[in-house]
Each structure stands twice: as structure tokens, then as C-alpha cells.
Design a protein around this nucleic acid. Structure first.
Lengths: 124, 124
DNA sequence: ACAGCTTCTTCACATCCTCGTCACGACTCG
DNA sequence: CGAGTCGTGACGAGGATGTGAAGAAGCTGT
């Protein structure tokens, strides 16, 4: 279980979130999440390094494939888009955490309330 | 959850507290502590010299990178900020100890109560 | 090529966070 | 008790991030 699991279809799990880069999709408690390419790539790169703080510059390099121009807010904007979709799909969870001055970190964190019964919905 | 062991990074452990300077974060019983740059740097320098009394002037030099002007209270203020966050994350523990007229010392010390789920035996 | 739709990028503005500093009260030690 | 030291809350400036919107660019089917 680790990076470079090309052939055997990489599966990244972060709490109730499942990312399948090779399938071009992600799942929330089994339900398919509708993400655009950029969104999925960003989520994937964050997921591959779950629990670690990723600098914007590195995320940009990984997702966009080129150097980030200083002042570019693309990463922030896409983090926003992902947050909206994740919140919508899994209310009561927080995934993308901001680390001021550095970047973002992906980690499943239950807000504790309003999410007492999200056990179902596996398979659709 | 993939650990993504990116060892070779410095890891400082002080009781239930874990400081990872290169990851830009610290953990309390595994949970991520949200610290600002200055806070983490100060905690790191204290951690690197755990159990030793650190004069304010030296801490300031290490963290701020310049000489401390006499009367500057920055170190005290940041010690305070760290104490608040540490107490919040690990109630029942005390980490930063004041040495009147000298400076501060980092050391994990259980206060003895409200620490019922910690596989105690924490020497004392 | 065209219309209709989605995605990408960039802006502008709003909001939040950090930092350094101050003021005042509590504390310590001689 | 007195002087110096430390704890603590608050504040403003500057910078970083959140957020909504608009136009550009790309995609699909006809």
C-alpha cells in the first residue's frame, strides 16, 4: 500500500472518503462524487500525502505540472470547490485543513455533531 | 490510513507531545496541534533542549534570529500562547515551566488528575 | 461551424490570522 | 515592603486566505 501502485489501481482512503485516481472518481461512503479533473487531481495529491501539510507551490507543481507564479490563487480556489463538494457529500466532516503560511493538509475529522448515522449508503 | 513514512525528518518527543519541525506541525497524542510559525519554532527550540533551562535571550536569538532588546516580552507572550494550546490539547499536563529570573524549561509533567485514560505510570 | 454546457482562470472584495507591543495586575525574592 | 519579573488580555497593522462572480477556454452533439 503505497505510491506507485499503478497497475493494481491505487486506492486512497481518508475516513469515509475514498479516492480512486485510476478510475477517475472518488466516493463518499460509497456514493460517487462528481469531480472535475482538476478537482480530482488536487484531491488525489492531497490524499497521497494525507496528514501532511502540503505547500501550495508543491500542490500546484503536482497538479498543474508547472511552477506556480507567485500570487496565483488557483490552489485556494480549487480547495474551495473541493470543500463545498465534500461538505455537501459528507456533512459533519472536515477534510481539507488550512495551515496558515504553509498550505493545506488532508485528514478526515468529524465535527462531532449532526453526523450520527452516516454508516449506511454503502453501494448505491 | 497511509502513514507515508518520510523519515529522516527530525522528531522531538516530550511525553505525549510530538514535535515535527520539518513537517511544520506538532502532535498531541497523535492529534495535530495547530500552531503558528513562531509558536512552532519556539516549541521546537524548547523541545530540542528539553529538561534544560533556556534563557529568554537565547530563545529569542534562536527563534527570532536576532538579539533581544532588553524589555522585550515576546518570548513570554508566545510561551503563554503555547501553554494555552497545550493545555487545551492535553489537559492534565504541564510542559513549559518558568524559572524565575532565568527563563523557561520544557518537560512533560502530569498534574496527576483528570488524566484517567493515559496508561499512566508517568514517572513523577 | 454552431449552440449549449461545463470547466478553468482570474479578479475584487470580505474575512481571518499572525505578530509585535502595550498596559496592568500578580507574583517572587531579597 | 519594594523592586524587579512574569502572567495575561487586548489592540492595530499588515498580510494571508475565503468567497462569489465573470469572462475565457474547452467539450459535445448536431
Amino acid at each position: 500500500m503505497s505510491a506507485t501502485a499503478r497497475s493494481s489501481s491505487e486506492i486512497i482512503e481518508v475516513g469515509p472518503l475514498q479516492i480512486l485516481p485510476d478510475e477517475h472518481l472518488a466516493r463518499a461512503d460509497g456514493r460517487v462524487l462528481v469531480l472535475s479533473i482538476r478537482e480530482l487531481r488536487l484531491l488525489t495529491e492531497l490524499g497521497r500525502r494525507a496528514d501532511r501539510i502540503m505547500p501550495r507551490e508543491e500542490l500546484f507543481r503536482l497538479v498543474w505540472g508547472r511552477e506556480m507564479r507567485s500570487g496565483d490563487r488557483s490552489v485556494d480556489v480549487y480547495v474551495r470547490k473541493l470543500r463545498v463538494k465534500l461538505e455537501e457529500a459528507l456533512p459533519g466532516w472536515r477534510f481539507i485543513h488550512t495551515h496558515f503560511g504553509f498550505g493545506y493538509r488532508l485528514a478526515a475529522e468529524s465535527t462531532g455533531r449532526s453526523q450520527l448515522d452516516h454508516t449506511t449508503a454503502t453501494t448505491e
